[in-house]
């Protein structure tokens, strides 16, 4: 693999290798708290902050972290940032903190964050790691909002709390309940697969 350009590093995680939609990482928050768009954005921002902060620290101190205890070190760094987020949210937006509940603390065990540390930040320069973390974090926010939008519109007939359909709308309640998380992501993947395969078919026809 030749050296990717800076923008490739940044945009890799946003869409082409989107953590949730392509790699199926960080599913726990992506399914659990995405019953409204607001919760999705909050969770996405919190994760972005934790990911960027820990990528910065890990890539800065990569020479001093012994190989044998690297995972533990990464988790400690991540847990520190999660504690910061947890306490800041509790202080500034208690309502949001309550809505996200235990899932804020569970950012620690988001496979996506640890995965980026192990696969990227521990090997690359600080600048690259920062770009990679920002890209992946934004990709995560995009995926969460995609989920949250579907579930909020179908499940409560609103978007960001604004009612869309008037009084006659019968909410599809199951979408805001746990099964809706699985179904919404499943349908998104169906749609994305259909789109990718159609594009491949078109490309093949064009080449023939």
């Amino acid at each position: 693999m030749s050296d990717p350009t800076r923008s490739e590093t940044l945009f890799r995680g946003v869409w082409r290798e989107n953590p949730v939609m392509i790699h199926m990482l960080g599913l726990c928050p992506a399914l659990a708290v995405t019953n409204t768009v607001m919760n999705s954005i909050a969770m996405g921002m919190a994760t972005l902050f934790v990911l960027t902060g820990s990528s910065l620290l890990v890539s800065t101190f990569k020479r001093f972290i012994p190989h044998e205890v690297r995972i533990t070190t990464y988790i400690l760094i991540i847990a520190t940032f999660v504690t910061i987020v947890d306490m800041s949210l509790a202080a500034w937006t208690p309502g949001l903190h309550k809505a996200l509940g235990a899932y804020i603390a569970l950012i620690v065990v988001n496979c996506m964050i640890l995965g980026r540390q192990e696969a990227y930040a521990s090997k690359q320069s600080v600048g690259r790691a920062l770009l990679d973390a920002l890209g992946t974090g934004f990709g995560f926010i995009i995926a969460l909002v995609m989920m949250g939008a579907v579930r909020e519109i179908l499940g409560s007939g609103s978007f960001l709390g604004v009612s869309l359909f008037g009084d006659n709308f019968e909410p599809w309640l199951v979408m805001v309940l746990p099964p809706g998380g699985f179904l919404a992501l499943g349908f998104w993947l169906l749609g994305l697969n259909w789109w990718t395969q159609r594009r491949e078919r078109r490309a093949a026809e064009g080449a023939a």
Partner: peptide
């Protein structure tokens, strides 16, 4: 539907 999409819908 092959792969994860099917798994997620089954999980749902």
């Amino acid at each position: 539907a092959r792969g994860m999409a099917l798994v997620l819908i089954i999980a749902g």
